[in-house]
Design a binder for these strands. Sequence first.
RNA 1: CGGGAUGUGGCGCAGCUUGGUUAGCGCGCUAGUCUGGGGGACUAGAGGCCGGAGGUUCAAAUCCUCUCAUCCCGACCA
Length: 566
Amino acid sequence: MLRTRLLLQTEREAPAEAEIVSHRLLLRAGMIRKVAAGVYTFMPLGMRVLDKVMAIVRREMDAAGAQEMLMPALQPADLWQRSGRWDQYGKEMMRLTDRHDREFALGPTHEELVTSLVGAQVSSYRQLPLNVYQIQGKFRDEIRPRFGLMRAREFFMKDAYSFDIDEEGLAKSYDAMYEAYSKIFTACGLDFRPVQASTGMMGGASSHEFHVLADTGEEEIAFCDTCDYAANTEVATYSRPQAENEEALGLEEVSTPGKQKVEEVSAFLGVDPGRLIKTLIYQTEDGPKAVLVPGNREANAEKLLSVLGEGPTLMDPEDIEKQTGIPFGFAGPIGLKIPVIADSAVAEMVNAVTGANKNDYHYTGVNPGRDFKVDETVDLQTVKEGDRCPECEGTISIRRGIETGHLFKLGTKYSEALGATFNSESGQIKPMIMGSYGIGVGRMIAAAVEQYNDDRGILWPASIAPFQVTILPLVKEGDDLWVTAHELHDTLEERGVEVLIDDRKESAGIKFADADLIGVPVQVIMGKKAAENGEAELKVRSTGERMNVSLSSLADDIIRMLDESS
RNA sequence: CGGGAUGUGGCGCAGCUUGGUUAGCGCGCUAGUCUGGGGGACUAGAGGCCGGAGGUUCAAAUCCUCUCAUCCCGACCA
């Protein structure tokens, strides 16, 4: 490809709106251009990367026995009403009405459509298992699209759906996808971690996310330094130290004037924050409820959802006083009239400290069960760096990750709602057991740039680079070396190498800067000095390594080098 | 949805407080000359209804009102 024919405008400065490095570099390198918030065009150079990633995804999905198909983005409301998600999905779903006032959605995902489709196509256990997938634009009206491709409103997703006759089959399909995902992420050259995850609104039994590790990731993942345990902090657990065998003391009311916060109370009474019980009052659909967690822990929002139902919100101080009569900062479970939900660690506490529901007073010597009733005990805590691993007692580390892939065991939620049933071997009608598996293709590209960049630009992993080689002739058009460079370009292209030659009449500095910016892994620098010795220079973008190679064997040497590195 | 901020050639910005000829600068773009190993130099150009609408005024990029868009933080989110 001739650089002068390529629709590519690099920028010296990134648009002010781009904050994170992947967004800045993808814009500066002319890979993407913004159309609206969270809506991007892939320019030819970016398209080449997208194609590379999609090819890897297809290769591994096909190898895992999945079949590619393509469903429409435009989907009738009826399907979504049958699964209940027309109402459930909320504003995140892009909706529209046609000229006959029929309602449609632009698909944020395709469980409904694929389930209905497979249900109609498959009627016998003999046709199962089945795994179908597609790569397609998805639409989600995100509350806050951001970071370029990282959280877009229209984005490419590979979504796959498995259909099995029983749980055992689902386990196999799921494992096959887990393996395929590991291969895909590895092939894309990414540093990633599969982690246990929440099933969220997808429903279903179990779930894993594939995270690309990066400090700019929007998610936190916890993993063990000794065993394989890894989980999204939304669902991560940890091993609690055994409660000390302490003798229960009597309940005592103490004056704590003006001490509202955990740190204040803990410092004032000279008690470890972990011995305090934090009482959080949440507004739920069934009225206010009290949630108890240890003073040194946060309540886990994701875990709360499963206990408190849809959208619990922390009540503000005024509402708490108005609705429950409890003074803010001195709330405690003793004598509370509203339901009390305790974290399991709180339930085990001995001689704890809590608010006394009275201004400027706390209780010490509080013992759950004896001094107050707990309506429900659940695990509500957020894991912290340095906690003990729940599986092997190793040390938990917390890192940020970019959620790039997600696996769900769905079970029969959708097959029952949409009538995807089959005739079993014994002649019974049964719902298919489903799994669904997504990969954010654009997000994968952004994640790759987050992981591979330096102050000059992108360092694409070879497998997803837009070109394998770029040739930089540093002489005038018409010069012998200019001609040689073009001959090399043609030879490489004929031999199947993806090569870009910078045939612009630009200074060496501009060509170097652009080549570094767009991140093509191998640069062939053809300047006068090396040519005098019958040589050209090869530069490896990722390492900065340079070597002189004879012009006569240049094409062969480049091809050998590419073969070796792949 | 709450908080904060920003819209001025393709990109980055100045001008706005205190209204006043022709709206500037850098990058990029066009043409030419020189240069030719890390965003080089010079010369000559092109490109803008200052996000939009309304208002105040003799006069609005600048003041007022409304509106649209965009970004950041939070809440939220497969």
